[in-house]
């Protein structure tokens, strides 16, 4: 670990070039949520040549379907969901300008390549730590697909949202490196 790096969303190239697999980051700014059903809809919107619900340039997508907030709260529990279910839709979104996604778990080789080709990184937040992560979400509003309930697209403002860099721009992979280091034959 090289100390925590601060990221301001939306992201620029300089911030991305500075990241290495294994870095812990702390995210500030606006991010957008989307999981399975929202991805399917965005994918169809792009394929049809229609306008996305938000401008994707430099943005971070967070794979999350939060629990409903208690009255007076910003959001309920809000940790990442398994990323590989979004693999089918990811390359197109990266081509549209998304520069990072936050999820959990490994992705296919093809997707790993797609991140590098599009100059984007894969961040992993702690799966099953939705209570802790919710404390870093200071504002949340549904901006599209309200009918999808927990799968709607939220615009979230985050402060110090913690994540780890999993795939960086240089082709390194935290999962692979970590397992190699600790595996006993």
């Amino acid at each position: 670990m090289n100390g925590v790096k601060r990221l301001s969303a939306p992201l620029n190239e300089k911030q991305l070039l500075n990241l290495r697999a294994g870095d812990e980051v702390s995210i500030y700014g606006v991010i957008y949520t989307a999981r399975d059903a929202a991805h399917k809809r965005i994918y169809e919107i792009i394929k049809n040549g229609d306008k996305m619900p938000f401008d994707p340039e430099g943005q971070i997508i967070y794979y999350v379907g939060p629990t409903p907030p208690r009255p007076g709260r910003v959001i309920g529990s809000a940790g990442p969901t398994t990323s590989c279910r979004m693999d089918k839709y990811t390359p197109l979104l990266l081509e549209k300008g998304i520069k990072a996604v936050i999820g959990k778990g490994k992705r296919s080789e093809e997707i790993k390549k797609s991140f590098i080709e599009n100059g984007a990184v894969y961040l992993v937040a702690l799966g099953g730590a939705g209570a802790l992560l919710s404390r870093h979400i200071v504002r949340a509003e549904v901006i599209a697909f309200e009918d999808l309930g927990p799968e709607a697209i939220y615009k979230m403002e985050v402060e110090g949202f913690p994540a780890f860099v999993c795939y960086d721009l240089y082709g390194r992979d935290l999962f692979e490196e970590g397992i190699k280091k600790y595996r006993k034959e």
Binding site: T67, G79, S134
Partner: peptide
């Protein structure tokens, strides 16, 4: 693993926050 230890600490902290605020441990309930 230092990263592993950090994860375990955060999971313990998550459990404490969940109990204190009566908020689900994980969003996938």
């Amino acid at each position: 693993s230092p990263v592993g230890k950090r994860v375990l600490c955060q999971l313990l902290e998550n459990a404490e926050i969940a109990a204190e605020e009566r908020i689900p441990l994980c969003q996938d309930t």
